[in-house]
Structure formats: structure tokens, C-alpha cells
Write a protein that binds this DNA or RNA. Structure first.
Length: 801
DNA sequence: GTTCTAGAAC
DNA sequence: GTTCTAGAAC
């Protein structure tokens, strides 16, 4: 006979209030948390919250007639309660796997085992423990701090592969309240969806940000894959233990399958997942509809590609969507995924409308893929028409801005404007267009039944799609971390979150400005701090003319200096008539500046080289009468050379006038030749040619720099921003401006060099240089259209005219 | 431009 | 305690 304890009594009271009805699946909820984290309060709050379900709280601290008992007593008590049809809270610390393992075994086909992790800051737990005077376990007063600290050092977060079907992480009071509400509302015939919910903190002492990048600390997603590992077990653990784990994993997968199926019915599958752990991509089958690709072959490729992607990117979940549940390709993929033992937590199929993926499917998805046509145009029926239609004019325009066409096997990420109905209704932030191989003779690029080529292209298409998705996720996670890290206790909804990412991207908010700024309007952000930043939103390359500075007039002190310098130029007022607004502003601002810069001794090195190249022959790649070509002493990329003018007195961009146009063109053409040479050696290289608005070294020099920015010399914000903000003036633009206005704009606002670090491809913001460098090493998002236009970028695949 | 380093941030 | 930034010195 089990011991009487207050918890049981409490159940008896609450059970009286339970209304009749068939009992559904029971649940064992294992509380995980340090003393003082609020486990007992949590249980009591749920139990006292309503008549929805019969609960029994097992509290080890009071199980023996109000005193602390043993684990065995707790197990017995829990078993008895389950036999009585009750659900059970295991109210003990359960901080490591060993403490939990016996309780997990309480699970069965009729009993789900959940964990609720109260991962509150240690200081909060200690403070509560120290203050309380009535703790059941007598852990209070001064000794509490030492105990809590010791326990937290050993803590080990629960994972699904321990046998839990659902794990909820709570990091603050809001999370706790939300979890309490969830369990309070859980009716006797209802089940909660499986998976990880809420955000897991770190259970190590390492810096989370860095470790996430190094993939050494995986958030829950890592644990999800543990289940797969278990099936192919190479575990060093004993065989008995191994068997148990595998069996339990299987149970979880069954549970999750049910959860996934539940999604089709509109249950909240993945609602929690979307909030923080797994990022979901919904995608249609590519090429199997209008492009008539063989379904058998396609399904093999799809399953292979998914397997590869899930192994490569640990934090993603993929959902293949087709309108009809009778879809042949969906069935084929579903069967093959099972055979391939793809983790059902991370891949499943969904029969429904991809444009209603969240409102109908409730999949918590922020990115969808579109099987598009080569013109990236709406129409053609099928999923392409449906997605373009649902995305509205905003999607069409955003796509058009990115590219005019797309090649088979490639994908294109489009950031969805907030005006798009897909964004507003579904919370979709990105659409990834993909073009697959075409086997339909009536459509362009018909492959004439060449399945060798077709399969290759289809593989490439899926691979490109999943890579692009991973890049988007990566960018979003950084933005999320930026916002989260500024206010650890904060929590916000999925919708807030996606909007925040979007706004952050849109408004280029400095991570330093913290959360509240993330949602400020464009005007207020701009007026407050970034008055001088370029206005262009989204994929900004800092080219917006409205805030650029046309510094030529003021730089030399007054107008007479300019007139003396450039006889072709009539006057500054003439320039202002045709120059953009920003140019005029700068002219006025700079008019009182000192006339000539004093260059430090170290800043004279290039000047010396230009004047006496023969003395520096070892460092020089090429010498002519006009220019010297040399490697940058501290290259900021794999290839970084300087085309140095030899004209004495021409120190920097703001000195350049119309008379220098032939020289500027020559420098550009020599730079281009060198870039092409490098590209012949390495076809993957992309180059950009341009000038620093305000160079550190005297003597006009053109940078020719490869765009992977892989260099140990790229060390700080100034280095990055000098090549990746409007501070960097593309040679093609400079030449055009000189041709049209007689001088080139310089963007010498010092904010440009200290502005937030953003990826030059996807525009994601990064908190520091190491993180940015990691990101740019993996980001595969195509360069923005602005960069791709007018030959600003030079590569083996582009025209550099 | 880089190096060095104090101190902020994590 | 370690990582990272930013300012001073050169």
C-alpha cells in the first residue's frame, strides 16, 4: 500500500470536479529544474487550475509521510496513480539523465512522457531557495545557494531520445505561465503535440553563440537526430541500454507521426517547434507536375536529397506538400522516407495547400519553396501560379528585383515584403523559387527524355533549395539571437518573431539598439540614429543616392580651389543643379574644412611606391607609365590587389576630376584584366573593383578584391565596412559620375565604418567579426541585383560590361 | 594601414 | 575566464 501524502489528497479533491467523459491518453510530466526553480508551484498551478484532467503530483521531498522519500517510492506512487487513470507530475529535480531514466519507463502506448524544464537563471533559483522557510525538502536558508550551484553544474537537459515525446523549455516566468496554461487546458481526451517546445538554454559553460556555429552545441534539433543515430546504433553504451533507447525512440517516432498526421487535421503540430528549435521549410515536388518528370526517379532523388540535407543542417525540418492526399509523388516519397528511416520529426509529407501552410496546416513555417518557371513569372497553373497569386504583387516585384530568369537546378531566395498577403496571413518571410528539369516537350529547355541530365539537375535543384533554406535559417537565427540576447527574459510570439526578423532586415537596425528598436518605424530609426545611412531597404548595398555625399566641392576648402583644379568644371552651383540632393548637402557641410589632408608617415607608403616603383620591385606585379599593380600588403580576401595611379598629387577619390577620366578608365580596365586572370585560375571567384571614399593611404588606388573575403587580415568592423557599405565606391559608378558630373561622390560619413556588420549576400546582421566571417563562409545566397548590375561584380559567369 | 592592450561583453 | 572591440601609438 502506498504512502499517503498531501499530493494524493490534492488529487482526490480535484478529481471530484472532473466532469464525466472518456479518458484519453495519460501523461507523465517530469519536472526538470533546480531547487527554487518553481517545480512544485508549477504542478500546483496546473492541478488547481481546473477540472480538465485528473492529476497526481509525486513529490520526493514529501512522499514519506510528509518527509523526503526514495526514488522507488516515487515510482510506486506514480504507477499507482497511472493505474487509477490519473496523469502524473514527477516533482523532483531530475537534472540528469540517470535521475530520469526509470521514470521515463513509465511511458507506454497509453502513456506519454513529457518533460518540462524550468531553466531559470541560477540566481533566481538561489534567491528563492534562500528566502523560503517552508520548503518540503528543507532546502532553504544559506545552504541553498551551494546546493543549487552544485546541482546546476551537473545539469543535463532532457532529450527526446531518452524517451520523452514532448519537452518544454521555460526560461522565464512568461514561459512558465504559458506551459502551465497548456497543461491546465489539457482535457482528458486530448494529447499535446510531440517535439521540443520553447527555447533551450545552454547546459554547458561555453559561449552558446560560437558553439552553435561550430555545431558543437546543438539546440534540441541535435537531439532529434540522436534518434536516427540510435537506429544505426554505434553507441558505446551497453546493449541492454541501447535496446531500451531504440525501442523508446521508435515510440517517439510513432508519436510524432501521429502528431504530423494531426497537422493535417489542423492540430497544432510544430506550433512550438516553429518558435525556436526546428525551422520548417514547406516545399512542393519539383518537376513532377507540368514538367512531367518520372515520379519513381523523382521520389528517389527527393528522399536522397532530404536525407543529405537533414544530416548537413541539424536545425531544419522539411515538409513536402502536395494538394491532394492521393498524390502519387507524395505517397512514393512517404514510403521511401520510411524505408530510408528518415527522422519523422524532421521530415514528413503534408496534403494541403502550400499557400495556407500555417493557417490550415499550422506548421509554424516561415519559408516556402516554389517550383517556378525559368522566367520567374506567375502563371502556368499549378503551384507556381498558386504561390505567385497568394504572394500578390509584392512577391512579383520582390522576385523581379532579384532576378529576371533562373536556370534549371538553381534556386532564388526572395525576401517577402510585409505587404504580401503570404506574409500577413501566413507569416511567411521568404519564398525560395526553384527551377527543376523539364521533361515536357511543350515547355522550354526540354531535356528530350535525357534522365541522366534530368536526374542531375533535379538533384541540384533540391540541393540548392535546401542550401538556400539553411542560409535563410542561419540569417534568421542570428537576428533572433541579437534580439533575444538583449533581453534574456523576453518572450514573444511566432508572429512577432518573424515580423521582427523582417523589420530588422528591412530597416537595417543595429543589433546594439536592442529589441525595442527592432520594431521602430523606418522614419524614427532613421531620424534617431542612422540619419546618414542609405535609405534603401532590404537588400541594401548602400547605393541610395539620397544620402550620398558629393564631397568634391568642399574637400578643397572653397570653390576657387576646384575651379583652379578643374578647368572643365564651371562652378559648384552648376554641379548642384544636376547632382543628387545628398551631394548638395555635403558641399555645404564641407565648405569650411581644411584644404589639404596631412598624411601620416605610415600612410605615405603607396605614394612612395608610385613615385619610385623600381625601389619596390619585389612587391610589384606590374609597372607602366601610369599605374603600378601590387598585392595589398594586408589582403582582406584571397585575392586583393591595388591598381595604383602614379600621378603625383592625385591622392584620393575626392581629388579626381574630369581630366582624370582616361586614367580612371585605364585603372579600371587593368583591374578587370587582373580579375579575369584570377578567375581563369579559379572560376568560383567573384571580384569587385572600387575605391574607398576616404582612403587610409595616400595616392589614388583602385581595390580589386575577391568577394569571399577569406583572409586573416580582415579583423575588424572597419575592414569589413570599408568594402561592404557605401563607403566603397564601385569603379564603374565612379567613372560614370566623373563622366557626367566631373567628379565622383564620396561617402565619408564615419558612421558607415562603424555601422552594423551585415552579410554582403543575404544582408543578415552579425554581432561581431568572427560570427560574420563564419557566416560569409557558408552563405550561398546570390548577390543582390544591385551588385549584379552594371558590371559591379566580375565573375566567370557574369558580363562585366 | 597595423599592433597593442584595457576593458567591455559574454 | 575568454573573446572581442575600440582607441592610442606608430
Amino acid at each position: 500500500m502506498m504512502e499517503e501524502n498531501p499530493a494524493v489528497q490534492m488529487d482526490a479533491d480535484s478529481s471530484k470536479e472532473v466532469e464525466g467523459g472518456t479518458l484519453g491518453k495519460q501523461v507523465v510530466v517530469m519536472m526538470v529544474g533546480a531547487p527554487g526553480s518553481g517545480k512544485s508551484t508549477f504542478c500546483n498551478d496546473v492541478v488547481s487550475g481546473g477540472p480538465h484532467r485528473l492529476w497526481h503530483r509525486v513529490c520526493q521531498d514529501s512522499i514519506a509521510n510528509g518527509k523526503a522519500g526514495t526514488k522507488l517510492q516515487c515510482l510506486r506512487s506514480a504507477l499507482d496513480a497511472l493505474k487509477d487513470g490519473k496523469s502524473v507530475f514527477i516533482d523532483r529535480c531530475n537534472l540528469d539523465r540517470e535521475q530520469r531514466v526509470e521514470f521515463v519507463k513509465l511511458g507506454s502506448p497509453q502513456v506519454d512522457v513529457h518533460a518540462v524544464v524550468l531553466d531559470l537563471p541560477a540566481r533566481v533559483c538561489i534567491s528563492r531557495s534562500v528566502k523560503r522557510t517552508d520548503h518540503e525538502g528543507n532546502l532553504q536558508g544559506g545552504k541553498a545557494a551551494a546546493v543549487v550551484n552544485r546541482m546546476l553544474q551537473k545539469k543535463e537537459f532532457p532529450k527526446l531520445n531518452e524517451g520523452f515525446s514532448r519537452i518544454t523549455f521555460c526560461q522565464n516566468d512568461n514561459d512558465v505561465q504559458s506551459a502551465v496554461d497548456t497543461y491546465r487546458a489539457l482535457g482528458p481526451s486530448e494529447s499535446l503535440p510531440s517535439g521540443y517546445f520553447g527555447q533551450k538554454g545552454t547546459d554547458t559553460k561555453v559561449q552558446v553563440g560560437i558553439m552553435k556555429f561550430l555545431k558543437k552545441v546543438e539546440a534540441p534539433e541535435g537531439s532529434a537526430s540522436d534518434g536516427v543515430k540510435c537506429q544505426n546504433s554505434t553507441s558505446k553504451e551497453g546493449s541492454k541500454e541501447k535496446d531500451t533507447q531504440c525501442m523508446e525512440t521508435e515510440t517517439i517516432q510513432i508519436n510524432n507521426k501521429k502528431a504530423a498526421e494531426g497537422g493535417k487535421r489542423g492540430d497544432s503540430v510544430g506550433g512550438g517547434i516553429s518558435s525556436n528549435s526546428l525551422h520548417t521549410l514547406a516545399f512542393p515536388s519539383i518537376s513532377t507536375a507540368d514538367f512531367q518528370f518520372n515520379h519513381e526517379k523523382a521520389s528517389d532523388i527527393i528522399v536522397e536529397s532530404i536525407d543529405e540535407a537533414l544530416n548537413k543542417f541539424k536545425n531544419i525540418r522539411l515538409v513536402m506538400v502536395d494538394l491532394s492526399s492521393g498524390s502519387r509523388i507524395l505517397s512514393l516519397v512517404k514510403d521511401k522516407a520510411v524505408k530510408k528511416k528518415l527522422d519523422p520529426l524532421r521530415f514528413f509529407t503534408f496534403a494541403g495547400n502550400i499557400t495556407l501552410i500555417n493557417t490550415e496546416g499550422n506548421l509554424g513555417c516561415t519559408v516556402i519553396a516554389n517550383a517556378t518557371n525559368w522566367r520567374l513569372k506567375p502563371g502556368g497553373g499549378g503551384v507556381n501560379a498558386a504561390i505567385f497569386n497568394a504572394g500578390g504583387e509584392a512577391l512579383k516585384l520582390a522576385t523581379k528585383e532579384q532576378a529576371g530568369t533562373i536556370s534549371p537546378g538553381k534556386s532564388l531566395v526572395v525576401s517577402l515584403p510585409s505587404t504580401s498577403p503570404l506574409f500577413k496571413r501566413e507569416g511567411i518571410t521568404h519564398v525560395i523559387h526553384v527551377l527543376g528539369p523539364n521533361m515536357n516537350p511543350e515547355r522550354p529547355n526540354y531535356l528530350k527524355n535525357d534522365y541522366v541530365k534530368g536526374c542531375k539537375i533535379l538533384c541540384e535543384a533540391y540541393s540548392s533549395l535546401f542550401e538556400s533554406f539553411a542560409s535563410v535559417v542561419h540569417a534568421q537565427r542570428f537576428q533572433k539571437e541579437s534580439c533575444n540576447s538583449s533581453e534574456p527574459g523576453s518572450s514573444y510570439s511566432h508572429k512577432d518573431h518573424t515580423q521582427r526578423n523582417y523589420f530588422d532586415k528591412l530597416f537595417r537596425v543595429d543589433p546594439k539598439n536592442k529589441r525595442e528598436d527592432c520594431l521602430e518605424s523606418l522614419d524614427s530609426v532613421r531620424n534617431k540614429k542612422y540619419k546618414a545611412l542609405p535609405l534603401e531597404c532590404g537588400l541594401n548595398d548602400g547605393r541610395d543616392m539620397r544620402h550620398n555625399d558629393f564631397a568634391g566641392c568642399g574637400n578643397h576648402g572653397d570653390e576657387s580651389v576646384i575651379l583652379e583644379h578643374n578647368e572643365n568644371m564651371t562652378s559648384c552651383s552648376d554641379i548642384t543643379n544636376s547632382a543628387p540632393q545628398g551631394m548638395i548637402q555635403k558641399k555645404n557641410k564641407k565648405i569650411s574644412d581644411s584644404s589639404k589632408k596631412n598624411w601620416s608617415s605610415w600612410a605615405q607608403a603607396l605614394h612612395q611606391t608610385a613615385m619610385n616603383p623600381e625601389k619596390h620591385k619585389d612587391d610589384i606585379l606590374h609597372i607602366s607609365d601610369d599605374v603600378v599593380v601590387l598585392n595589398d600588403l594586408y589582403p582582406k580576401a584571397k585575392k586583393h590587389i591595388l591598381i595604383l595611379s602614379r600621378l603625383n598629387g592625385l591622392d584620393e577619390l575626392r581629388d579626381v576630376r574630369k581630366e582624370h577620366l582616361p586614367l580612371m578608365r585605364k585603372m579600371h580596365s587593368i583591374g578587370l584584366e587582373w580579375a579575369k586572370k584570377f578567375i581563369i585560375d579559379d572560376n568560383s571567384m567573384v571580384f569587385r573593383l572600387g575605391y574607398h571614399s576616404v582612403p587610409s593611404m595616400r595616392q589614388l588606388h583602385l581595390h580589386v578584391i575577391s568577394q569571399e573575403f577569406d583572409s586573416i587580415h580582415l579583423k575588424n568592423k572597419k575592414h569589413w565596412n570599408s568594402f561592404n557599405t557605401a563607403f566603397f565606391r564601385d569603379s564603374v559608378d565612379v567613372i560614370k559620375e566623373i563622366d557626367e558630373h566631373g567628379m565622383a561622390m564620396v561617402n565619408d560619413n564615419e558612421n558607415l565604418l562603424s555601422t552594423e556588420l551585415r552579410c554582403h549576400r543575404c544582408r543578415s546582421a552579425h554581432p561581431n567579426i568572427p560570427k560574420l566571417k563564419f557566416h560569409i563562409g557558408v552563405c550561398k545566397v546570390p548577390f543582390s541585383d544591385t551588385l549584379l548590375q552594371n558590371g559591379r561584380l566580375v565573375s566567370g559567369h557574369l558580363n562585366e560590361t
